[in-house]
Design a protein around this nucleic acid. Structure first.
Lengths: 203, 203
DNA sequence: GCAATTTGTAAACAGTGTTTACTTTGAGCC
DNA sequence: GGCTCAAAGTAAACACTGTTTACAAATTGC
């Protein structure tokens, strides 16, 4: 993989993060060692410390990328700037976001744990600490209201309820505690129940 | 702390688990080292391997204890064998269980992560992998039905929905992503919405 | 083209999980 | 009580790890 025969590597930082991200996706991030990463990239162990203060800093950066990736996935499912018109479309979007959230936790389990673990965005870039993915949920709920599925706009409590219900599903499905995964089927039921909880008129 | 001046320690296994459990409660379990634990207990590093195959085995055992502790807490809140008669009592029990679940995740964060992480009860003692704490939730929902709060008995989908909604709340509250914790207040709202979702007649 | 800064190296330090060979201890049995 | 024997400890080594330090090479800006 290494192509540099000169002293300098050039773009160590990005390649290091790519490697860590790959490990995080595979779920082996906790076992990843800086020395092995340096070895794989054909670089000495100390070189890493020119780009990250310590291992935790690397993990924090990777967790941040995880949120970015999730946001990107959301964007392709439900483009933020192109609103939706019909009730059915709004429902489909909301379901799609929930499905993607669960799929993300199951397919990128290690990264998922990193994102919501101690290396999450505690005091990172975002001062509030609230990842921007939350904005998509708010938007989807707004659309459900504007298309008449929800008789009243979803307040903060409703938003948080919806988020944590989907989050709990995602976390339990990905966890080894629950391995019998009905996948999309259970997501659909879950979403139906969420909408009923916050007062939706069901089809 | 060590009181044995003889060669044998006697009850190393239990003291080791107690130490690990203490670290897990404090959230420093991932940083815990076997060597330091051995040092604290006045024992050589190798001695641990007479009681646990490796570090992961220790962590698995600690995670199992976590579930036991949660079950114990549930038992004091809602004794399994003494059913409840009135709708108000049933509602109070359900709310109490939910609150305890969230409190557990927030006060024993490290242990919580261990329990639902890779060291959870995947292929551990319980063949199904379903911790017995799930039984309390089922029981509480049954009581809600028998006392008339729920018009119909809660099916598996409803049970799982209730669990994951509470689980998501617990996980998000404990996570560094969300640090603004309204605590019991939000639990009450959450429970109300859960009950509404599965068809409860609200007071 | 030269100075200064960035980015790498090499070697060391302290600490880790784990294995191996060996010793001590306690329990069970005639 | 002595004898055996398995259980439960030790000591030393192995192969790692994250991190720091002093130094060297490459890149950049003037």
């Amino acid at each position: 993989m290494q192509k540099r025969d000169t002293h300098h590597h050039g773009n160590l930082k990005s390649e290091l993060m790519a490697l860590a991200l790959q490990a995080a996706r595979a779920g082996t991030i906790e076992d990843m060692s800086l020395r092995k990463a340096a070895r794989d990239l054909g670089v000495s162990p100390g070189a890493i410390y020119r780009h990250f203060a310590d291992k935790d800093a690397l993990l924090r950066a990777v967790a941040q990328i995880g949120f970015d990736e999730l946001a990107t996935a959301f964007e392709t499912i439900a483009p933020f700037d192109t609103p939706v018109a019909t009730a059915q479309q709004a429902r489909k979007r909301f379901l799609g976001l929930a499905e993607e959230y669960v799929r993300f936790s199951m397919t990128h389990y290690g990264l998922w744990r990193l994102m919501f673990g101690p290396h999450g965005v505690g005091t990172s870039t975002d001062p509030i600490g609230r990842p921007s993915t939350y904005a998509w949920l708010q938007r989807a709920l707004d659309e459900l209201h504007h298309t008449g599925v929800l008789p009243a706009p979803a307040g903060p409590a409703d938003q948080f309820f919806a988020w944590s219900a989907i989050h709990g599903l995602a976390d339990l499905q990905a966890s080894p505690v629950i391995r019998t995964a009905p996948l999309t089927e259970s997501v659909e039921k879950q979403v139906t129940l969420i909408l009923r909880a916050i007062g939706a008129s069901l089809p």
